[in-house]
Amino acid sequence: MILQSPSFEEGGEIPSKYGYKNGNTSPPLIIKQIPQQTKSLVLIMDDPDAMGAVGRLWVHWIVWNIDPRKPEIKESSLPENAVEGITDFVEIGYGGPAPPDKRHTYVFKIYALNAELNLEKGSTKKQVEEAMQNHIIAQTSLSGTFAP
């Protein structure tokens, strides 16, 4: 699988409009080469660099039950029938980059599953990861950086 964004390249700068304090618009994402047996996709965006600033990985976006036949997430939108979880901003939906100290790397991870997840809107990353166990058939990621 391949995850790309028309807004930034792998390892590149995430445009400021996608930042939490700059409009908090979710970036467009395109998923390619999805395995044929995929029943649903999961997106998790987090900030591993937050460990140094807040002592833990910071969750920015969780989306599950993305239809693999419609593998494009348009800017500032949620795919039809997809469900969002709660972020570490204690909000449901996208929470853009907001590094408190220096430039951070943000990782968008896509998981192809052989099932849909039966979870309530607002579920946590931990609940989503537990539900995904034994259902992941492929995964990929896209990283971008953002500075305060």
Rank of each mutant, 00 (worst) to 15 (best):
L117K: 14
E120N: 10
W61G: 03
G122S: 01
V59D: 05
A82R: 11
L29K: 09
Q36W: 10
L43H: 07
D101A: 02
P99V: 09
S5A: 13
E72T: 04
S26I: 13
I34H: 13
A98T: 03
A82F: 08
K74V: 12
K126V: 07
I14N: 05
I34A: 11
K39A: 15
N22L: 13
T140W: 06
P100H: 12
I34T: 10
A50Q: 03
V83R: 07
I110F: 02
E72W: 04
G96P: 06
T140G: 02
L142F: 00
E130H: 00
S16R: 15
G12V: 08
L78M: 03
E75C: 04
I73G: 01
I73S: 04
V59F: 01
A50T: 00
K102F: 05
M51Y: 01
I73T: 01
S123G: 15
L43K: 12
V128Y: 05
Q4L: 13
E13G: 05
D67E: 01
I86Q: 14
G11R: 04
G11H: 00
E91G: 05
I34Q: 13
Y94M: 05
I66M: 14
Q4S: 14
S141N: 15
Q36Y: 15
G95D: 02
D46R: 07
E75N: 04
V83C: 11
M51H: 02
L142N: 02
N134I: 06
G12M: 12
S143H: 11
I66C: 04
L119C: 11
L41Q: 03
E129N: 12
G95K: 02
M45H: 10
A115I: 14
F146G: 00
G11F: 00
V128W: 04
N22H: 08
E13Y: 07
T140N: 15
I44W: 09
P71W: 07
Q36P: 08
Q33F: 14
I62P: 10
G85D: 03
W61T: 00
R103G: 05
A50V: 01
E72C: 01
I137Q: 03
E130M: 01
G95P: 13
D67C: 01
A82E: 13
P27L: 10
R69S: 14
I92V: 15
